[in-house]
């Protein structure tokens, strides 16, 4: 069968404005959108640029906006969309476009770094003798957050980031912090909560649930953010709970 893709194009060296190119290829309903993009690139137009790596939804390289919603191109199949019409492929929203479907992810990885406490670690050259004990119940408290693959799909979908607070630390960053805060072994949980209390931190989230809706790993992102807010409220002295003391 044939499938048609309308693809966002922008080459900074030659284009002032982005435009769309339309490609029709042979595709099967069970093929990945990534397979289709590769067919376009390898068979029709080698100038098209997009990122990819593992091609099965674990590395997080190919987050795109497909038919107006954030998704991984390798995890969505042609049949997931109405392929009797054009399938619209655009870069992730929120980020600056560098070329075609490639966005500048520096703001994303800088935020992941910004939520990491900069306290010096103990020497990793010294080996411990035994593991620490953690019950399966304790381990399950942060299991959902471990599924995150840092694909940034949630950033492209978050109305707070795209419309209200450009500086919001973002769903994936809060989720990663939540993973440590809820881990019974974490020794710097307090410091991590402090980081999230800062302006553009966890309180910037307005619970639109768009991150949860688009998350390729089906993580309950909004719920994790709400649990983190709850932890701040219940564990901190009242006056500075929202970071506005």
């Amino acid at each position: 069968m044939k499938a048609t893709f309308k693809v966002y194009r922008f080459t900074p060296e030659t284009d002032r404005e982005p435009h769309y190119d339309t490609y029709t290829i042979n595709a099967e309903p069970n093929e990945r959108i990534l397979d289709c993009l590769n067919k376009i690139r390898w068979q029709q137009d080698p100038t098209l640029s997009f990122r990819m790596s593992c091609a099965h939804g674990i590395c997080g390289s190919d987050g795109l906006t497909i038919n107006s919603q954030s998704a991984l191109a390798c995890q969505k199949l042609v049949k997931d969309y109405d392929y009797t019409k054009e399938i619209l492929v655009e870069p992730l929203r929120y980020f600056c476009v560098v070329k075609d479907l490639i966005v500048d992810l520096k703001p994303f990885f800088e935020r992941i770094k910004s939520i990491t406490p900069q306290t010096p670690l103990s020497q990793v050259t010294v080996e411990p003798e035994k593991e620490r004990i953690q019950t399966p119940e304790e381990r399950s408290r942060f299991d959902d957050a471990l599924k995150c693959i840092l694909c940034a799909c949630c950033y492209g979908a978050c109305p707070v980031m795209t419309e209200q607070d450009e500086g919001f630390v973002g769903p994936a960053a809060v989720l990663r912090e939540q993973r440590y805060i809820y881990d019974s072994r974490t020794t710097d949980a307090k410091e991590r909560l402090e980081i999230l209390k800062k302006p553009h931190g966890v309180w910037a989230c307005k619970s639109y649930y768009m991150c949860t809706l688009v998350c390729p790993k089906n993580i309950k992102v909004t719920e994790a953010i709400l649990r983190t807010k709850n932890k701040i409220i219940t564990e901190q002295p009242k006056q500075d709970a929202t970071g506005e003391s």
Binding site: S53, C54, I58, C59, G60, S61, L105, I149, L150
Partner: peptide
């Protein structure tokens, strides 16, 4: 690639 995309993740 971005470091977090390395194939060890698979």
């Amino acid at each position: 690639v971005h470091v977090t995309r390395s194939h060890s993740v698979a």
